[in-house]
Computed example of a mutant assay.
Amino acid sequence: MSGICDGRVVVVTGAGRGLGRAHALAFAAEGARVVVNDLGVGLDGVPGPDSPARQVADEIRAAGGTALAHGGDIATPQGAASLVTTALETYGRLDTLVNNAGFLRDRMLVNLDEDDWDAVLRVHLKGHFLTLKHAASHWRAEAKAGRTPTARVVNTASGAGLLGSLGQGNYSAAKAGIVGLTLVAAAELARYGVQVNAIAPAARTRMTEHTFAATMAAPETGFDAMAPGNVSPLVVWLGSTASEGVTGRVFETEGGRITVMEGWRPGPTADTGRRRSPAEAGETARKLLAEAEPPGRVYGA
């Protein structure tokens, strides 16, 4: 196997199924050595009896690639540290981190338990933070030792984090947090040779195939726009040296479509140079809103 990731060592979290599996296979097909991380949990985050990470690693090796499985919990400091250490001790380096692991516990806000809020934030947002922290610590040390890496991080956000999604307050908040984390990491880590970007994918996975059954169903013929593998080429490119100079960006990707998302930036504004009364502030706000672009529609609304 050879390609744009020849010689690179890539870690993919949540790579036992769905998007993560597709990413792992795609990186291996482009010559990367892949650490396949998956805790083997169900949709609700409860561990299951099988080891999907091992199955994907076996699949990569059977196709002539190089891979190993890692079953640690990346939402714990020990699990995240172990993931980075495994890559370094096995392959001697770490070049790309793809944060993909996550699950759902959907409820309307009034029915959302604190435990379900905490669990989703823990895996999605804390899981991204911990793996990124440990990988970044290694890359900073390399840079300070005069071995500045060509490192890449690809985080997984969601349209739910950009626009919101009914019944997914916990998931939407976590994914919005990942966008913020991506922007900060891109700015902080650039000096160490690290580029950090995020994708907001739409594809058929365990988390979407039932919730959005009508739009996620595979067609009987023709292009399967919701196949997870459609997302992976962009992820592989972002994780390669070919993406030099691209950092702090969020890409929405679905089927054959790639969109550069443009986040919060100043819109219509007015400045009186003095304090307004509440009535004046309201009048100004309404005038500005009339000039502004309408917000995108919340998913499910």
Rank of each mutant, 00 (worst) to 15 (best):
H134C: 02
H134A: 03
H134I: 01
A135G: 01
A135I: 00
A136Q: 06
A136I: 05
S137P: 00
H138A: 00
H138S: 00
H138Y: 10
H138V: 00
R140T: 04
R140Q: 13
R140E: 06
A141I: 05
A141E: 14
A141V: 03
A143W: 05
K144D: 06
K144H: 12
K144A: 13
A145I: 08
A145Q: 10
G146D: 08
G146A: 07
T148W: 00
P149T: 04
P149F: 02
P149A: 04
T150H: 15
A151P: 01
R152I: 05
R152M: 08
V153C: 05
V153R: 00
V153W: 05
V153G: 00
V154D: 01
N155R: 07
N155D: 12
N155E: 14
T156C: 13
T156E: 02
T156F: 11
T156G: 09
A157L: 03
A157K: 01
G159F: 09
G161S: 14
G161P: 04
G161C: 14
G161A: 13
L162I: 14
L162H: 05
L163T: 11
L163D: 09
G164I: 02
G164H: 05
S165K: 09
S165P: 06
G167M: 08
G167D: 07
G167W: 07
Q168R: 12
Q168C: 11
Q168A: 13
Q168D: 07
Q168P: 08
G169N: 13
N170S: 15
N170R: 12
Y171T: 05
Y171E: 06
Y171P: 07
S172D: 04
S172P: 10
S172R: 10
S172C: 13
A173V: 14
A174F: 12
K175C: 08
K175S: 06
K175F: 12
A176I: 11
G177Y: 09
G177Q: 06
G177P: 03
G177I: 11
I178W: 02
I178K: 03
V179Q: 00
V179E: 02
G180P: 08
L181G: 00
L181H: 01
L181Y: 01
L181S: 01
T182A: 13
T182G: 07
T182Y: 11
L183D: 09
L183H: 14
L183N: 12
V184G: 09
V184H: 12
V184C: 14
V184L: 14
V184D: 10
A185G: 12
A185E: 02
A185V: 11
A185Q: 01
A186I: 11
A187D: 14
A187V: 14
E188K: 11
E188V: 10
L189C: 04
L189R: 01
L189W: 09
A190K: 15
R191M: 10
R191Q: 15
R191K: 15
Y192G: 06
Y192I: 09
Y192C: 06
G193M: 04
G193C: 06
G193L: 02
V194C: 05
V194W: 05
Q195Y: 10
Q195D: 12
V196G: 02
N197R: 10
N197S: 15
A198F: 07
I199C: 07
P201C: 14
P201G: 11
A202P: 03
A202D: 09
A203T: 06
A203E: 02
R204I: 03
R204Q: 08
R204C: 06
R204A: 02
R204L: 07
R204Y: 03
R204V: 02
T205F: 00
T205K: 04
T205L: 06
R206H: 13
M207V: 02
M207R: 04
